[in-house]
Design a protein around this nucleic acid. Sequence first.
DNA 1: CTGAAAGCGCTTACAG
DNA 2: CTGAAAGCGCTTACAG
Lengths: 343, 343
Amino acid sequence: MRVTLRDIASAAGVSMMTVSNVVNGNHARVSPATVAKVRRIVDELGYVPSASARSLAARASHLVGLLVPAADEDSLTLSPHNTAILGQVERSLRKSGYHLLLRGIADPAEIPEALRSWSLDGAILLGFLDEEIDRLGAVELGRVPVLAIDSYSDNPLTTGVRSDDFTGARLATAHLIGLGHREILFAGPAFGDAGVVAERRRGFLAAFADAGLSRSDGLVATVNTTHEDGLALGGHLLERFPSATAVFATADILAIGVMAGLAEAGVPVPARLSVVGFDDLDLSAYVTPKLTTVAQDMTAKADNAVTLLLAEVKDERRPESPLTLPVRLVERDSTAPASRSPW
Amino acid sequence: MRVTLRDIASAAGVSMMTVSNVVNGNHARVSPATVAKVRRIVDELGYVPSASARSLAARASHLVGLLVPAADEDSLTLSPHNTAILGQVERSLRKSGYHLLLRGIADPAEIPEALRSWSLDGAILLGFLDEEIDRLGAVELGRVPVLAIDSYSDNPLTTGVRSDDFTGARLATAHLIGLGHREILFAGPAFGDAGVVAERRRGFLAAFADAGLSRSDGLVATVNTTHEDGLALGGHLLERFPSATAVFATADILAIGVMAGLAEAGVPVPARLSVVGFDDLDLSAYVTPKLTTVAQDMTAKADNAVTLLLAEVKDERRPESPLTLPVRLVERDSTAPASRSPW
DNA sequence: CTGAAAGCGCTTACAG
DNA sequence: CTGAAAGCGCTTACAG
């Protein structure tokens, strides 16, 4: 049925071991003539090695898992941000000779099984909460190297790659303050002591401190980072926060929703309300007005995640510290000087 | 090191075979007491079966590949449409106990290797051209069931699932004609005799025939379905096609780009030019003006793809005919009656 | 209801 | 430079 190593070996009149060496590029151990002969027969017979046999024998799968939270059992909705990361992770793995197993995780308790059943060589966690990552112990992880994207967890068993969320939020907020805004709404998910949102909140506060300004504590809207939540918030934003002249949203997709809600409510952006996002999605340059936002380099984030993870897979040494990537402010059309006129 | 079937068997004092039956739910063949005992020990020791050993022994991997074209070796850029399909395919597979291997394909010649190396139980091809699918023969596919999404290839070795592209385009075009438009630009990729774009072109033409109208043959813009290409087209649209009063774009992301280009060029939509897309992305309701488009049910497309593929995997019988899913027109704000005023 | 044996297709030491 | 043997962790007939 299937063409196996044994078939190639007998056709070539050599041992399976030799064929294996040729197929795996260990040419130092085989004569050039033998390499050529085996190669030819491999091509003729269309031999493709069995990845499962190889994994089993070598105790290495060349498979990396990308684990993404699935809201519930019924959906794996990929945010634009996660989609960009996913595409880049796949590409980067492929170039390194690894394959990607994509797995939606409905419950963090599934993580151990997900990591171990396929003998994954490593795994990337995308979009999990720091507290979920904190809970992963040696028992859960086994010996599988795990890297968490966008995590600030200090779990010593995992490695982290993230953008400089603190600085990003600080830049965005400083930009608004520079435009004369003082009543700036912070819109995003609930923030605890740690994690991406907490970092952005800290950066937000730091910008006020930098400017020697005080701040209205009540200007916080807790929402999910979805267009839908943004739309709802935007529709009633000035009713809930009449003093606000600007919004810092923790994600572009949220900011875009907010702008859509404001548009429906007849609130002009940026004339009445400035809006800043975070991510710099492609989409953010497509909407009207074009969104001012904090650009993070998602390609670099994905590439570095793969590089760091594979280094750990191969050398079995964990990077000493997490990696934080630079961000920059992209000024477009959704922000303008705070107006002094009464509304 | 790793907990194996053998460990469980000896701890439970039964054979590996019995443990295997318990783990795989063949309870008919094991006494309830034994099931309970084995189960307890499995939990205690944290046993997770080895997928590669299982694949090798059973000659079935419970792995399904999702193959997506990668523009070049350097990128796997997922369109919004493909992202939606991907997320739904993962979810649907997971609910059926299968796993998803995501693979970017830089060259169709990689397909055979991709299908066979992991002993995939089946594969879904997303976004390949019909001619690429036509070329897949028994040698390339091996015995792996393959389903192509959005394909009209009549390759008997593959199954197809797609939306009713013909009817979608016909509805969209009839909508424009009903609004008084006669000079309608068809914007999309090059269309041959077959494939999604060809079907949409046929539907476009059919709408004119339905209305007993003739049509300006030159009103075709050949572009890729990206925002970027749309932007470029929109920027010079009226220079290239001064008579046009409407555009039918073969994808929302293209239509949205066109609208952005038109906006930059100062061409009002829909006052001067109506625009219709195809897909009904989430995004399409976010842009200004909201896009009139043909909605296809991507959830259904992905779910049916998985269902059909798994039926073939399990029963080894190929569905007798490809599946075509219904579409509907969603009228929003990017279309309006053709103006009679001179421009 | 339960088990012993063979084998899936590779790789890993170990010898020569 | 090349090979024979053992084994990775399961499942599949086949017996009982």
